[in-house]
């Protein structure tokens, strides 16, 4: 245990925590916007898998990381259109529709991978970008300011999402539509358009989350996410539908994940139970969820399709 509490190991663990938190944070932020508009999207994991695969395939074929991120974003938007049409215009049950999207994403990314790639080949990873001066700070420089642009983007999106939700007309519409769509409708706010837009933003974020995941790892394999999208949905509840809370959840998840990995590497956790220890983040999150989330109310219209009749 003493090996763990050394400056260099702690700094490395913190850096890993922030890196690991990035895809969760992106996906959960997107899900937050969708849920605030009253739409639960359980398909996040499927969207992440699809966008991760297409991002990976793009890097494999072109070597261009930015093109890969763009492709992932587009995949997210396409899935967003599909999900929005199903749930907003056809008013389908959101829970089941989301699971359908997940299963489609899981199966299709798997199929494409087997057809087009076959065996996993590593690709270049996202480079870290050092922020001048700040990157050289002791202790905090490495974990906070020597990260990839994707991580900066994810954390930068937190305050932007706060502003979007709380300070803009669109955000006001989103919050109103998620709580009392009839009231919004009676004032001439289009519930359909608002939810459509919220779903599109949410799926775009999920697409970026898939890109962040695969470009940090530099490799793709079937079911790469292993349920990360579902954890992201749980983190929205954990964060009580507030971007800062969601960020806290993603960071907690990253810290526990990184610590377990580090402890495995240092031999603090015996090899025999290392798989078991891998469950720690999930258990911790669920525990925290039970303790924290009961105090806050979900958006009142969450999962409820809207129609005038």
């Amino acid at each position: 245990m003493d090996d763990f509490f050394t400056t260099s190991v702690l700094v490395a663990t913190a850096a890993a925590a922030i890196r690991l938190a990035t895809p969760y944070l992106l996906a959960a932020l997107g899900e937050t916007i969708g849920q605030r508009s009253g739409v639960l999207n359980l398909g996040v994991d499927g969207v992440m898998l699809l966008s991760a695969f297409f991002a990976y395939w793009t890097v494999l074929s072109t070597g261009n990381l930015w093109l890969a991120a763009l492709v992932a974003l587009l995949v997210g938007l396409i899935m967003g259109v599909i999900y929005a049409v199903i749930t907003v215009f056809f008013e389908a049950t959101q829970g089941i529709s989301g699971i359908g999207i997940f299963i489609f994403g899981l199966g299709f990314s798997d199929l494409m991978f087997r057809q087009q790639v076959g065996t996993p080949k590593p690709v270049p990873r996202l480079p870290s970008v050092n922020i001048p001066f700040l990157a050289d700070l002791p202790y905090v420089g490495e974990p906070l300011f020597q990260r990839s642009l994707m991580t900066y983007l994810a954390f930068g999106l937190v305050p932007l999402t706060v502003v979007l939700l709380n300070k803009t007309t669109f955000g006001l519409n989103v919050r109103a539509v998620g709580e009392n769509p009839q009231a919004a409708d009676s004032l001439g706010v289009s519930v359909e358009r608002t939810r459509f837009a919220a779903i599109m933003i949410g799926n775009a974020f999920a697409g970026l989350a898939g890109a962040a995941l695969v470009l940090q790892l530099g490799i793709f394999q079937p079911n790469l996410t292993q349920g990360m999208g579902f954890i992201a949905v749980a983190l929205v509840y954990f964060g009580a539908w507030r971007p800062w809370g969601v960020m806290g959840g993603a960071l907690l998840y990253g810290v526990v994940n990184a610590t377990v990995l580090q402890w495995k590497a240092l031999g603090i956790i015996p090899v025999s139970i290392s798989d078991l220890a891998g469950m720690a983040p999930a258990i911790l999150t669920i525990g925290a969820l039970i303790l924290l989330a009961r105090r806050v109310h979900a958006p009142a219209a969450l999962t409820k399709p809207f129609s005038r009749h």
Partner: peptide, 8 residues
Amino acid sequence: HFMLVPTL
């Protein structure tokens, strides 16, 4: 029924 959003 009031057309108000109670959380706003």
